Computed example of a mutant assay.
Amino acid sequence: MIDARDIVRAADLLHDVVAPTPLEYSRWLSELVGGEVFLKCENLQRTGSFKLRGAYVRMARLSKKERARGVVAASAGNHAQGVALAAQLLGIDATVFMPYGAPIPKEKATRAYGADVRFAGTSIDDCLAAASEFERETGAILIHPFDHPDIVAGQATTGLEIVEQCPQVRTVVVPTGGGGLIAGIASAMQRDGMPIGVVGVQAAAAAAYPASLAAGEPVALDKMATMADGIAVGLPGKVPFEVIREHVDEIVTVDEDSLSKALLLVLERAKLMVEPAGAAGVAAVLDDPLRFEPPVVVVLTGGNIDPLLLLRVLRHGLAAAGRYLSLRVRIPDTPGGLATLLTRLAQEEANIIEVLHERISASLHLDEVEVALQLETRGEEHRMRVLASLDSNGYTYTLN
């Protein structure tokens, strides 16, 4: 377990390294919850996530001989940047293993901080195996992304800031991967007998903690598939697992639609850029706002997202929110057939983004053509009204 003294010592180490991140009041989430909701903006932290806190504390406590051996880490990107910057500040050589397909901005930022980036496998777990092998071969010190007391103590300083900025807090909602951040925050919440609940949020397609907690020990997932690469961890860490089992109230999961909608809304309503993992806490609040006792603090854990992924996630989020409709409609192959369809859509005030007119296909009858449409709608109710209009006018369509 991480005690208060460990956390205070970590905060002292970080005093001139990290700046306290803002705690922003969220009116739109507060209205949903029926009480105050605040966003803890770790996406605005140096390197774009909370990871520098734990990485620096761990590495600052290395002996002179250990520093001379260099360090090695495994990360999808945020821990990579934290380790790379900490190594630069402390004068340590760093090698970082990242999965193939890791976001390009995260890779470039890690290299810019001076680390040697290598690729291994398709997940953090694959990279951890490669980093462990590198440690055995070279003697470099493995800086684990979450499974070490110093890492947890460093991340716990986020919790100290939350308590200082919002002393009335009753629930803290934390995106959760390996568990280092939520274990740290839960440790920091153990003060003065205050009833502060801590809730972890995992992507449903990469949720290792529910089964592990049920089993009483870390249990590895067979597979993972989520846009939230920052919390896609297949095996919980032993150190954070014990803290989470003791001090975290519950772990909930959110699906991909919820993640993309949350990212879209954080961008639109809070004017903050987050990555899918960083939006997981907001997704949980949107899914079940009355679940959380206010005042609530939701941690935005990271803001490092590839612009190309951002475009895809935003489009997915628009579709999930009923504001983007992609479909294929069959119409008669007669003069005015396309104009009639477009007029119907205009009458329903659907904004047409793109039209593709396909006349030749083995699946079409001789007297039919197919029109691929991308439409902008104003929400789920409007989306359903557009589809109902197509139904009532006899159109056959398929949703993409």
Rank of each mutant, 00 (worst) to 15 (best):
E31C: 09
A120W: 05
W28T: 09
A19R: 15
R111S: 06
V173N: 10
Y397A: 00
L213Y: 12
T301K: 08
P295I: 09
V199A: 10
V163A: 13
V18C: 07
L341M: 03
W28R: 13
D126G: 05
T171W: 06
S49E: 02
E370K: 08
R136G: 09
A207W: 12
V18Y: 04
P99E: 02
I231W: 04
G234F: 01
T343Q: 13
A206L: 04
T157V: 04
L387A: 06
E36W: 05
V71P: 00
A214V: 11
A156C: 10
G216D: 12
D126L: 06
R53E: 06
S258R: 15
G379S: 05
V254D: 03
A84C: 03
V386C: 04
A68W: 03
L265E: 15
M227Q: 07
I331C: 00
T158V: 15
L300T: 11
T122D: 07
I182W: 10
A183S: 14
L85Y: 12
K51Q: 02
V173C: 08
F241T: 12
N43F: 07
V163K: 12
E354K: 14
D229P: 00
E381F: 05
S326N: 11
V163Q: 12
A94K: 06
V174R: 09
V17M: 12
G216C: 13
P99Q: 03
L327Y: 02
R323L: 09
G197K: 15
G302S: 08
M98H: 00
R53H: 08
R269V: 06
L327W: 01
D147K: 09
G101F: 02
D222I: 08
G34K: 06
E135W: 05
R312H: 14
V152I: 15
L272C: 08
S361T: 01
A362V: 05
H79Y: 04
Q347S: 13
L62Y: 04
A277R: 07
L89S: 10
E250Y: 08
A362C: 01
D333T: 06
G101W: 00
A87E: 09
N78C: 01
G193S: 04
G180W: 02
H357Q: 15
A350I: 11
D249V: 09
G336Q: 07
R245K: 15
G114S: 11
F134A: 14
L128I: 15
L373F: 01
G114H: 13
H144F: 11
S123L: 01
E137D: 13
V371S: 03
S123I: 01
R111E: 14
V96P: 00
A80N: 00
E107T: 06
K65G: 04
V296E: 04
A73G: 06
F97T: 07
V33Y: 05
G336Y: 08
A84E: 05
A130E: 10
I231D: 04
A204N: 10
L366S: 14
P240L: 12
G230V: 02
P335C: 04
G317K: 11
G179N: 11
A130S: 11
M224G: 00
A4V: 13
Y100V: 14
G336P: 05
F50E: 11
L235D: 07
V371Q: 08
P105L: 07
H79E: 06
V72P: 01
I231M: 02
K40V: 13
H382Q: 07
I353P: 02
G159H: 09
D16G: 09
M273L: 15
I352Y: 10
F119I: 08
G70P: 01
